[in-house]
Design a protein around this nucleic acid. Sequence first.
DNA 1: CAACAATTGTTAATCGTTTTCAATGGGCAA
DNA 2: TTGCCCATTGAAAACGATTAACAATTGTTG
Lengths: 331, 331
Amino acid sequence: MNITIKDVARAANVSVATVSRVLNNKNNVSEDAIQAVNRAVEELGYSPNFLGRDLRKSETKRILAIIGSTEQSFYNDVLRGMQDAAYAEGYDVLIATTRNDAEHEMHLLGMLFSRAVDGAVLMAPRLDSKTISDLSKRYKLAICLERLNIDDILCVTIDNERAGFDATSYLIGKGRRRIGLITTEIRSQSSVDRENGYKRALKEAGIPFDEKLVYYGDYDADTGTKGCEELMSLDNKPDAIFSISDTISIGAMTYAVQHGITVGKDLLFFGFDNIAYSHMFIPKLSTVEQPCYLLGKTVIEKLIVNMKSDTPDKSTYKLPHSLILRESTGD
Amino acid sequence: MNITIKDVARAANVSVATVSRVLNNKNNVSEDAIQAVNRAVEELGYSPNFLGRDLRKSETKRILAIIGSTEQSFYNDVLRGMQDAAYAEGYDVLIATTRNDAEHEMHLLGMLFSRAVDGAVLMAPRLDSKTISDLSKRYKLAICLERLNIDDILCVTIDNERAGFDATSYLIGKGRRRIGLITTEIRSQSSVDRENGYKRALKEAGIPFDEKLVYYGDYDADTGTKGCEELMSLDNKPDAIFSISDTISIGAMTYAVQHGITVGKDLLFFGFDNIAYSHMFIPKLSTVEQPCYLLGKTVIEKLIVNMKSDTPDKSTYKLPHSLILRESTGD
DNA sequence: CAACAATTGTTAATCGTTTTCAATGGGCAA
DNA sequence: TTGCCCATTGAAAACGATTAACAATTGTTG
C-alpha cells in the first residue's frame, strides 16, 4: 500500500541503492539515473520513510523543546531563536508541554531515551535537579531560561539573582523603602534567584527584610490581584511591588487602578519578562527583559555542538538582561 | 554503545523475543522471565528504541499539532484538549510552528508524509485549500479553528460567520449604527467568515455597508491602535468597533483610553477569543468565546477514529461559541 | 506410562532505509 | 589486442525492534 524506495527503484529501472544515492545527493550517480529516479519519485508521489532512514542512521535530526505550557508568551521568541539555530544545522524543533507535571515531563523525556529525538531542551523543569543532571550524563539534554542547583548540565539563562537585584535596586533608587514581592509558591530556581536578588538589594541598601511583604502564589494575573490586595491591606503598606512575572504585575496593577491608587506615584510596579501586554496595559509596566531570541538560539547552538562531541560542554551561560522603564515606575 | 534488546536478553538469560513479550505485556510469559527481564532492564537502564519499534509497527502513536506561533494564547486550551483526547488513546501530541509561512508549513507536513507522525492537525493553514484538501486524501490530516473553502476534509471549528453576525448584531442592538471593523489583511477563512457575518448583520438591520469603516492590518495590538486612530479620524466617526481578535481590540482600546474617549459609552468595543488579558484590561473587553478545550478534544477524537478507518469522516463540525459581555460594550 | 494438551522459548523474517563492497563496463595507453 | 583505471551500479548486510511459525518443555489424564 505504501510506496517505498523499492517501488521507485522498480519504476526507474535501477537498484534501491541508486535511488538512495540520488535522494541523498551523492555525487557518484549518472545524470541519466538522476533523471529516471526523479521522474519515478514524481510519478509515484514518493517520500522517504523517516523511520527507516532514522533507524539506519541512528539520528533523527529533531530536537524536542519541553515547556510547561504555551501560555507564557515570551516562549515564542525563545522558540524562534531555537528554530533558527536548529534549521541552520538541518534540525527541526518539536515542542511538547509538560503541563507542569513532573511525571509527564519524564514521559516526554522518554522520547529522548527512545531515540525519537536526538536531543531535548528543558525550559520549565519540574523534575528534581539530581534526576535531570543524571540524565544529562547519558543523553543530549540542556536547560534554558532556568537553572538547576546542580551545575553540571549545559544551561543557558540570564542571571536571575542579578536581575532581581537590579529591579529592586531601581525601586530603592526611586526612594522606596517598603518594597513588596509577589512570587510563586513553586520554588523554581529562577524564582528563588530573583527573590534572593530582591533580598540582597534590600540588604545592601540597609533596609530590613520584612516577610510580611512577600506574597506567594501562582504564575497568573489572579495571584497579582490577590497579592496586591493582601499587601495593600497591611498596616504598613508597601510603596512599590516587584513581581517575578509581568502577568502577575498586571494583575496587581489591575487591583491598584481599580482601587484608586495612582500607579507610578503612590505605588510603583516592576515586572519581569517584557511580555507584549506590559506596554499595552495602561499604565505601561516597567519590567526586566530577557534576551529571549538569543537565549533560544544559543542553547540550540551549544546543544548541537554537544551532540557531535563526546566531551560535552556542561557550562552555564548567563546572557545579559535589561531593565525597561515605563510609567509604572514613574518614568 | 547503545543498549539494545539483545543486551537485555543476554543479561536476563532469555531470548530477545521473550524480552519483547515482557515489554509488550503479552500473556504467554512465565513470572520468572518477567522478573528477570525487568531486573535486566532496570540494571542496564534500557529503553526500547522507538525507531525500530515504529518501523516494524508502521505507526508512531504521535500526532503533530501545527500552529502559526505560540503567541496566540488561546492555543493553550486547544492543545490541552488535544492532549487529553490523545493520551486517552495512547497518543502523544507534538507541536510545531509554521511561523505563518506556507513553505515551512509544507516542510512540517513532511513529517506526516515521511511517517514520523501518524497524523496532523492544521490550526493556521497558509497553504492553499486545494493543496491541503488533496493531501488529506492520502494522509490523516484535519483542520481545527479554521476552515477551508473546500469542504472535503475533517474540520472542527466554530461558525465564524455566525459569530461575526452575533457580535455585530449585539452592537446594533445597543443602538449603534456606525460600526467599524478591524480585521486582517491575510484572508484566513475565519477572518473572511467573521467579516461576512459583520456585513450580514448590517444588512439585516438595514444599515448600509461603508468600506471606509473597515481597517485591514495584522494580528497584533499595534494594528488595533492604528486602526482605531484611522477610524476615529474619519469625518463620520464610528460609534462601535468590532475586531476579529482581542489583541487587536486591546490595541484599539488603548488608543481610545489615551485619547479621552469613554469606552463603553462614546465608543463600544467587541473582540474575539476571550484571551486572559481581555478581562484584565481596564475597561474589560466584551468578546466572542470559542470552546477551545472542546475544539481540541473533538478534533483529535475524530482524527483518531479516521486513523483506524479507511472511509474517513470528512465532515465539518461547528461547535457553539458564546458572547462574553463586559464593560467595553457598556455591560 | 503413554499420549496429548498446555505452556513457554527460539529462530528467522520483516519494516524501509543507508552503506559497504564487489562487479560491470567503457575509455585509454601500451 | 590486452590490461588498467575510473565511474557507475547492484547485491546484501546492517540499524533495532516485533511477531509468526515452530520447537521444546512441562503438566495432565486415561
